[in-house]
Simulated assay, not measured.
Amino acid sequence: MSHTRLHSLWTRLRRRPSDKVIEGLARVGYGARGFVYLSAGMLTLLAATDQMGEAAGSTEAIGWLAQQAFGKVWLVLLGLGLWAFVAWRGVQALFDADHQGHDLKGIAVRVGQASSALFHGLLAATVFEYLDEFGGAAAEAAEDLAERREKAEMLLALPMGQWLLVAAGLAVLALGIGNMVRAVRDDFTDSLACSPKLCRRLSPLARTGYAARGFAYLPLAAFVILAGLRAEPGAVTSLGEALDALEKQPGGSWMLGATALGLMAFGAFAFVEARWRKIRAPLSPG
């Protein structure tokens, strides 16, 4: 065997474990995300059917988990899983693992992946904050909301602060609408390595999930935008409280219930991605 062929074989052998590590991070990460959204959807459904008091976003779902039996163990596993997802999103955004390309559309997708990495990084940090405050989930949730309002107050104190806060609300609105547009336009089967028949059956799960996730952000966006227009940092709220406000509207319980089922569908599809998503780990930056 020639020196060139030996070198090529050695290079492939060296790269393969790295690829497997990245794939493992991605699959664990999708599973962790699925667990968060399934929990949030389940708790919101219980709220919509008056089985419990309040709806739940991702942060509230983590607080609920902290209060369960073996909650500390679950928090550690969930936190590590979310950091794994952050790592995978970073690979997607920085190294174009999904081969989106460098045109305007590809760059936009990768910016979205970077934003997702930031969001899930904050969520993972929240998990470990709950871990530090184990046994005080309600206090931690109140502290988290107070921190959001404090940041809103700091933003309002800046020049044109009202409009900066409005812009933040519009960014949340754009995120919601973007998810709803994806629900209609995207072909989710392209990213799955399963049989065509199975992929067709799983596609409605993804569409339902993305539509509900997008819809869930709309009331939150409204609160942030109004907080900016009225210069009232106290109007900034959490996703769970925004969904609670939705329930108080005419037909709100039905809308909240449908949203809850959709969030559960989003979580279920994340588990589908953990099993069947095509993970294209790059061999080198590019």
Rank of each mutant, 00 (worst) to 15 (best):
E129Y: 13
S39D: 08
A139S: 13
N179D: 12
G101E: 08
A216Q: 00
F35C: 09
A47K: 04
A61P: 06
R89C: 15
L6K: 15
L175G: 14
R275G: 03
G267D: 01
V166I: 10
D132P: 01
W74N: 11
C199P: 03
A47F: 04
R200C: 06
F188K: 01
G252K: 04
G176E: 01
L218R: 09
V127C: 07
A265V: 07
A48R: 00
A32K: 00
G267T: 07
A231H: 03
I225P: 00
F35D: 10
G53D: 12
A168V: 09
K151F: 12
E232C: 11
G178A: 05
A114S: 13
Q67R: 13
P282V: 09
L38P: 01
P250H: 08
I107V: 11
R27P: 06
A152N: 05
S58T: 10
A216W: 03
A235S: 07
A235F: 11
L94S: 06
L170W: 09
G79N: 04
A231V: 08
S58G: 10
M154P: 08
A270L: 07
L263N: 00
F215C: 07
L131K: 09
F119P: 03
E232P: 01
L246M: 11
A216F: 02
G81M: 00
G161Y: 04
L9H: 14
L13Q: 15
V172G: 04
L229E: 03
A117I: 09
L82Q: 04
V21A: 13
L205A: 06
V21M: 13
H7N: 15
T259G: 01
V166L: 01
T49I: 12
L104T: 09
S8M: 11
A87V: 12
L6Q: 14
D98V: 01
F95G: 02
K105F: 11
G257C: 04
R185S: 08
E60R: 12
G252I: 07
S284R: 14
S39M: 15
G234P: 05
A55L: 07
Q113L: 13
C194I: 14
T208D: 05
R5F: 14
S253F: 09
L283Q: 14
Q113C: 07
A97D: 02
T237P: 01
T126G: 12
V86F: 11
L173R: 12
A93G: 08
T11G: 11
G121W: 10
V36C: 07
A222Q: 11
G209C: 04
E143H: 12
V73K: 10
T11N: 15
V166W: 02
L104N: 06
H120I: 13
W276K: 00
E247N: 14
S115F: 14
A231P: 02
L94A: 13
R12M: 13
R275P: 02
E241S: 12
A26D: 08
A93E: 06
L158Y: 02
A97V: 00
G214H: 02
F223L: 09
L145D: 04
G57T: 01
L155Y: 05
L246I: 06
D96P: 00
I62M: 02
G31C: 09
A125K: 02
S195E: 10
I62P: 00
Q100K: 15
S115R: 14
M154S: 15
A183C: 05
A124I: 09
F188A: 03
Q162M: 04
S115N: 15
E150L: 14
A174Q: 11
A174L: 08
L65G: 03
V76W: 09
E241D: 12
R89G: 05
R213F: 07
